[in-house]
Design a protein around this nucleic acid. Structure first.
Lengths: 277, 277
DNA sequence: CTTTCTCAATGAGTTTATATCATGAATTGG
DNA sequence: CCAATTCATGATATAAACTCATTGAGAAAG
């Protein structure tokens, strides 16, 4: 869809509604208050149609197994391993949907969900996949001759990049190092892979689960700023509702992922670097 | 939109979703359970888009005044009087939307609502328009030589046609006549004009507000089966939320409808019949 | 201050999607 | 058994939607 097409659609929509949804201010444009409200309502409604469609599609056992997974976990861990699952179960097609936020398992919008959360309770079936080890990572250029900071206070000399859905991460880490509360408001990103990009680019120091940035660590694009890692209480869980547990596809996936998660996920950097050479 | 187009759309939708929404059984078709759910969800979402669009459209004072009114009242009372309003306020365009159910005045989906209800309370501004006089009406053919029944029990010999949103109507009427509870389940209709049609066709006896069927009474297509009427506690109210009360259009309409509602609405049948001749 | 660059709007043209018409198949009611 | 009703479908027309290329207006850079 080109820019021109969108411009035209906006125009005809504004004409239909009889009001301006955007304020044009020279080179840019931004939503009017009415436009904001309308956008919220309509995109909400469209989301519901999408959800209903997925629920309908996945309600029949069509050989498609749908999984809502937290974005970076899906990108860096799940998807790379999927070919293996495919090889074991060629008849099951896996459909991965990026999804944060609370799960809507009851609606049947997807069969399985992978979330980073506390051990869940209630009417949901949960399988713990793995915990993670979080380190303070940055580009090597930020360190003096490639060595980690000696004093924890040195961390505070750089922007501490945050993750929108984990506001507690930096406070936890700093207090574990015996430092006070987080000094300044920091730039934060929605996904770890964005955070990783920012750190690689030298924007500052980011708290990232090590297994998500194996490659960057192995290649030396990211290094630990201080020789310490923490293990959050939250972990990755595979979730589904009780009825879904009956499905052949779900059972197959659960037994596969149990084994996949048991494998050592963060190989020693040396071996990894060797593979890349 | 032709039938063929709809058929095609259904087909492509079923293909997209990968499941059947309808069960084809020879000459007819009906929704599958999945289809029902999908229909409910999607039409709900579409309704919300419609509501948001109306809310957006009516949020600006574009000279359009929108009124959600109970269907038969709109048809038989409001719309016939609208030309008069138009004549007084040629600059205001009135947009009448049929609407039962609870009002969503807060959403701004329409400026005004007309409902048949108890005196409303809470954060809504209400103006009482009129009450109604309900009679038991039927086609003259059902009566012996055009005279009302002598004994109330005679009512029970005919199907008592009901109105879906007024289940209490017949029990109230019968108990007012000293009769027991409603004997048999009765056919019921969603709108008074349908009920009127059914009664004219001789299907049975219907409880209808007299002012809605002035013409039928005047022309003798409907007559009172028993010489009694009741006045429900509920009445017609014009409703709007507080902010809407500031609008020029709303104020104009309110003062107009106050006068319109004060006029005698049920003229004597003789005079009316004379007009028609 | 000029130039360059970016971004949204627009004119013209083309492709695609969507509706229509007419017809066909299947079923049911009289 | 025929007529009527109902949904599906093939071919075709048309309107809608999208793209490309360009323009004009600002903002940023030189």
């Amino acid at each position: 869809m080109t820019q021109g097409a969108v411009s035209r659609l906006i125009q005809s929509l504004e004409e239909d509604l009889g009001l301006k949804l955007f304020t044009r201010e020279g080179r840019g444009l931004s939503l009017t208050p009415a436009g904001e409200i309308y956008h919220r309502e309509v995109s909400d409604a469209i989301d519901r149609i999408g959800a209903a469609s997925r629920a309908a599609r996945y309600s029949v056992d069509s050989g498609i197994l749908s999984i809502s997974a937290v974005p970076t976990f899906a990108m860096r861990w799940l998807i790379p391993k999927l070919p293996d699952f495919q090889a074991v179960h060629p008849d099951i097609l896996v459909d991965v949907i990026a999804g944060d936020g609370p799960t809507n398992l009851a609606l049947g919008e997807y069969h399985l969900a992978i979330r980073f959360c506390e051990p869940p309770f209630g009417d949901v079936v949960a399988q713990r996949l793995m915990s993670e080890e979080v380190g303070a990572l940055c580009a090597p250029a930020l360190l003096r001759n490639g060595r980690p900071f000696e004093r924890p206070e040195d961390l505070l000399r750089f922007p501490l990049l945050g993750h929108s859905t984990r506001p507690e991460a930096w406070p936890d880490f700093l207090s574990a190092m015996g430092l006070g509360p987080l000094p300044a408001p920091k730039p934060s990103f929605e996904h770890f892979f964005m955070l990783a990009e920012a750190a690689v680019a030298g924007m500052g120091i980011a708290l990232i689960p090590l297994f998500l940035v194996r490659d960057e660590l192995a290649a030396g694009r990211l290094v630990q700023a201080v020789p310490m890692t923490i293990r959050p209480r939250r972990a990755y869980y595979l979730l589904h509702n009780r009825p879904a547990g009956q499905m052949r596809m779900v059972r197959a996936f659960k037994s596969w992922i149990r084994r996949a998660a048991a494998e050592p996920s963060s190989r020693p950097p040396v071996a990894r670097a060797g593979q890349e050479a």
